[in-house]
């Protein structure tokens, strides 16, 4: 009698525990949704004044004048996209090469040191990259790479504009290079992990047919891991778009669009970080929040496109 009673009690208690656990986990999950919508609402609420004042021309006006309170977001949008593009242009191929080396060609004893080094690179706080960029990397570029680019491309029509001097050291290219270093570990370590997941039997079969390492990577590993690699690239792109401190230090913070990537520029996050503390006046603050909203939309769009591409790829593979 007493045994069955105890058993009933225990079962009830366990069921209660289960229900409570379910509710707690659900609350935690819903909390994220609430948080996300609160952030979006706050950004929209804050930027209403700017969009009401300037209309959608806010998106394509270059002027950013705190004195006359005429604000346009084109220069920061341009800077954000160009620096991220330079970063991806360098980080994706280098990151993939690192991953291929680590999974296919690297001797066993060297794998761990390189792998750990890449993970440490990912763990360095961005402010450290900023300080290093400003004090060491920018002066180095000013004396080496930038004069080289200016003199080499000086006579070639389009490239001479792209690499027009003077070599300031800091600028759009420097910011792009720093970003490349910062996103490299994301691309490299995720690619390595997904390359590792390729079934050995596939690779061995390819080698058995007489494929070279390049052919195995090109025709077996990459097609098999496409989805994961794109995921890693998008994660890196997300970081590049939103990176603030390191970029602020080395981009030169000029609200101008210049044909030259050696010239100073600015990004959305750098502008906000620079000017938010001393932004006096409702319209100025609202324009900065509107910049934040634009960055949010850009990042969201990038992620959405990535998701869509991944879905299409998966469907193709399914067929």
């Amino acid at each position: 009698m007493s045994v069955t009673l105890n058993r009933g009690q225990v079962l009830r208690r366990l069921r209660l525990g289960d229900i409570a656990f379910k509710h707690i986990t659900r609350t935690a999950a819903i909390f994220v949704l609430v948080l996300l919508s609160a952030v979006i609402l706050a950004l929209i609420d804050g930027s209403v004044l700017a969009f009401r004042t300037f209309g959608f021309s806010f998106l394509w006006e270059e002027q950013w004048n705190p004195v006359t309170e005429k604000f346009g977001a084109l220069a920061p949008i341009y800077g954000t996209i160009v620096t991220s593009f330079i970063a991806m242009l360098i980080a994706v191929p280098v990151g993939l090469l690192i991953a291929v080396f680590l999974t296919e060609l690297c001797p066993m004893w060297l794998r761990r040191p390189i792998g750990i080094a890449i993970e440490l690179l990912a763990g360095i706080p961005s402010i450290i990259y900023g300080i290093w960029g400003l004090f060491i990397f920018a002066p180095f570029l000013q004396q080496t790479l930038q004069p080289f680019l200016i003199s080499v491309f000086g006579d070639i029509p389009v490239l001479s504009t792209l690499f027009a001097g003077p070599p300031y050291g800091i600028g759009v290219l420097t910011a792009g290079l720093i970003l490349a270093i910062m996103v490299l570990p994301f691309v490299a370590s995720i690619s390595r992990d997904v390359f590792d997941a390729v079934p050995p039997v596939l690779k061995e079969a390819a080698y058995g047919l007489g494929c070279t390492t390049w052919e195995v990577v090109r025709h077996v590993v990459l097609p098999f891991t496409r989805v994961g690699v794109i995921g890693g690239v998008m994660l890196g792109l997300g970081r590049a778009l939103g990176e603030t401190m390191a970029v602020t230090f080395v981009i030169g913070n000029a609200h101008r669009i210049s044909g030259s990537i050696l010239a100073p520029g600015t990004t959305i996050s750098a502008t906000i970080a620079n000017e938010f503390t001393e932004a006096v006046g409702a319209l100025y603050t609202s324009s900065l929040i509107a910049l934040g909203l634009i960055l949010f939309v850009i990042t969201f769009t990038v992620l959405a496109i990535a998701r869509y591409m991944l879905m299409r790829l998966e469907r193709q593979l399914g067929n």
């Binding site: 004195v67 920018a138 800091i170 602020t248 230090f249 100073p264």
Partner: peptide, 26 residues
């Protein structure tokens, strides 16, 4: 004039220390 202005030329550096460092390097 304001706490920030639309600069016709030049590079921007963060803080007094940033300007000091950029001038020292350039």
């Amino acid at each position: 004039f304001n706490t920030s202005v639309e600069w016709p030329v030049g590079i921007g550096a963060k803080g007094n220390e940033g300007v000091a460092n950029n001038v020292a390097n350039t």
